[in-house]
Measured scan of single mutants.
Amino acid sequence: TTVEVQGVEYRFDNPEEAEKFAKKMAKSLNLRVELHGNKWRVE
């Protein structure tokens, strides 16, 4: 599972970890998070 934060990609073996990371990043950067296939995008 991939998390893309403002163009930078982070890879996770565990989808739940990816989701937690994406939501945490979105909250700290005041952005929103969307799931596209198996990629979380924070923008």
Rank of each mutant, 00 (worst) to 15 (best):
S28F: 13
V33R: 02
G7Y: 03
H36C: 14
D13H: 09
K24I: 12
D13S: 10
K27W: 12
M25W: 07
N38T: 09
V42M: 05
E9I: 13
H36E: 11
V33I: 11
N38I: 05
A22D: 00
T1S: 11
K20N: 10
K39L: 11
E19C: 09
E9K: 06
A26N: 02
A18H: 00
M25D: 01
E34F: 13
Q6H: 09
L29F: 04
L31S: 08
F21I: 01
N14H: 09
D13F: 09
L35S: 05
E4A: 09
E17C: 14
E17L: 09
E34Y: 14
G7D: 04
W40Q: 02
T1F: 15
H36V: 15
T2K: 06
K24M: 14
L35G: 04
P15V: 06
D13T: 11
R11L: 13
F12T: 00
K39H: 09
E9F: 08
K27H: 15
L35P: 03
V5W: 06
R41E: 07
T2L: 14
A18Y: 00
E17H: 07
L35A: 05
M25H: 03
N38E: 08
N38L: 06
M25A: 08
N38M: 06
M25V: 13
K23T: 07
A26V: 02
V3Q: 00
L31W: 05
K27C: 15
A22T: 01
L29W: 03
K23A: 06
M25E: 05
K23L: 11
E4T: 11
L31T: 07
V8F: 08
E16W: 12
E19L: 09
W40D: 02
H36F: 12
E34T: 14
W40M: 03
E17Q: 09
K24N: 13
Q6M: 13
E19W: 08
F12P: 00
N38K: 07
F21H: 02
G37A: 06
V33C: 15
K27T: 14
K20E: 13
A18S: 02
V3K: 00
L35D: 03
V8M: 09
L31I: 05
E9D: 06
S28I: 15
V3P: 00
D13K: 09
G7P: 00
K20R: 12
L35Q: 09
E4H: 09
V42W: 01
R41Q: 10
A18T: 00
V33W: 07
L29V: 02
R32H: 13
A26I: 01
E19A: 08
E9C: 15
V3A: 03
W40F: 07
N14T: 12
L29A: 04
V33L: 12
F12E: 00
W40V: 03
E19G: 04
K23C: 14
G37M: 06
E16A: 12
E9S: 10
Y10N: 02
R11G: 06
H36I: 14
K20M: 11
Y10V: 04
E16M: 11
R41L: 14
G37F: 05
K39Q: 09
V8L: 09
R41F: 14
W40N: 02
K23N: 09
R11Q: 13
Q6R: 09
F12K: 01
N30W: 03
K39E: 06
V33F: 13
S28L: 15
V5S: 03
K39A: 09
E4I: 14
E4Q: 10
E43R: 08
R11P: 07
K23Y: 13
S28N: 12
A18W: 01
H36T: 11
R11D: 08
N14Q: 08
L29E: 04
V33P: 09
D13M: 10
H36M: 10
N14G: 06
E9N: 07
E19R: 07
E17N: 06
A26M: 03
E34L: 08
T2H: 07
Q6P: 01
T2G: 04
L29D: 04
K23P: 00
E4N: 09
E19Y: 10
A18V: 01
L35K: 12
F12G: 00
K23F: 12
E4M: 11
N30Y: 05
R32I: 10
T1W: 15
R11T: 12
N30H: 09
E17T: 09
A22K: 01
T2D: 05
L35F: 14
V3I: 02
D13C: 14
K20Y: 10
R11Y: 14
F21R: 00
S28A: 15
A18Q: 00
K20D: 12
K27E: 15
G7A: 03
R11K: 14
N14P: 01
